[in-house]
Simulated assay, not measured.
Amino acid sequence: MRQRRSKVPDVPLLMTPGPTQVRENVRITRALEMTNPDLDLKFFKFYRKTCFKLAAFMNTESQVLILSGEGMVALDSTCASLAEPGDRVLIIDNGIFGEGFADMVKVYGAEPVVFKGERTRGISVENLREFLENDSDFKFATIVHCDTPSGVLNDIREICPLLKSYGILTVVDAVSSMVGEPIFTDDWKIDVCIGASQKGFSAPPGLAFLSISPDAWEMMEGRKTPIPSYYCNLLLWKNYFEDFWFPYTPPISDIYGFKVALNNVLKEGGALKRHRRIAKAVRKAVIRAGLSLYLKSDYCSTVTTINVPTGLDGEALIQKMKDKHGILIGGNFGYLKRKAVRIGHMGENARLEYVSETLKALQETLEDEGVVLRADMESVFLEEMVKKK
Rank of each mutant, 00 (worst) to 15 (best):
G344W: 03
V192L: 05
E383Q: 14
N25C: 10
D313L: 08
S165A: 10
L54T: 01
K322D: 14
E33N: 12
V22P: 03
E221A: 12
G151K: 04
T302R: 02
D87W: 03
A279E: 03
V11G: 08
S202M: 09
S6M: 13
K273W: 11
V125K: 11
C79F: 08
D173G: 05
L153V: 05
G331P: 05
E242C: 09
E126W: 05
T365M: 10
V89G: 06
D135K: 08
F97I: 15
A361V: 00
L293T: 11
Q363V: 07
R4W: 14
V386I: 15
N239C: 10
F333W: 13
W237T: 01
A279D: 05
Q63L: 09
V260A: 02
G314M: 07
G117K: 04
R5F: 12
L362M: 13
H275I: 15
C79K: 06
I183M: 12
V144R: 07
C160L: 06
L352D: 12
C146G: 02
Q319P: 04
F184W: 14
R119L: 15
K42Q: 12
E84R: 01
E221Y: 07
V8Q: 05
I156Q: 03
L362T: 01
R27A: 15
C79R: 07
D38M: 14
T16R: 06
T142W: 10
R283F: 13
V265P: 06
V171F: 10
K337N: 12
L373D: 03
I306K: 10
V73S: 13
H275D: 08
V303N: 12
D135A: 08
M220T: 00
S136D: 11
L359H: 03
L328V: 15
R48T: 12
V8P: 00
E130G: 09
K49L: 11
V286N: 06
S81E: 04
T50G: 00
K199Y: 00
Y231L: 13
M219T: 02
D243H: 08
S356Q: 07
G206M: 03
R121G: 05
Y256T: 01
F115K: 05
I159M: 00
V144I: 13
S213F: 00
V308Q: 00
Y256V: 02
F381T: 09
R374F: 15
L262K: 04
Y166H: 09
A31E: 15
M220H: 04
Y231C: 11
M385W: 09
M346F: 03
K324N: 13
N36P: 04
G314Y: 11
R88S: 09
K106E: 14
M377E: 03
G270D: 15
Y230W: 11
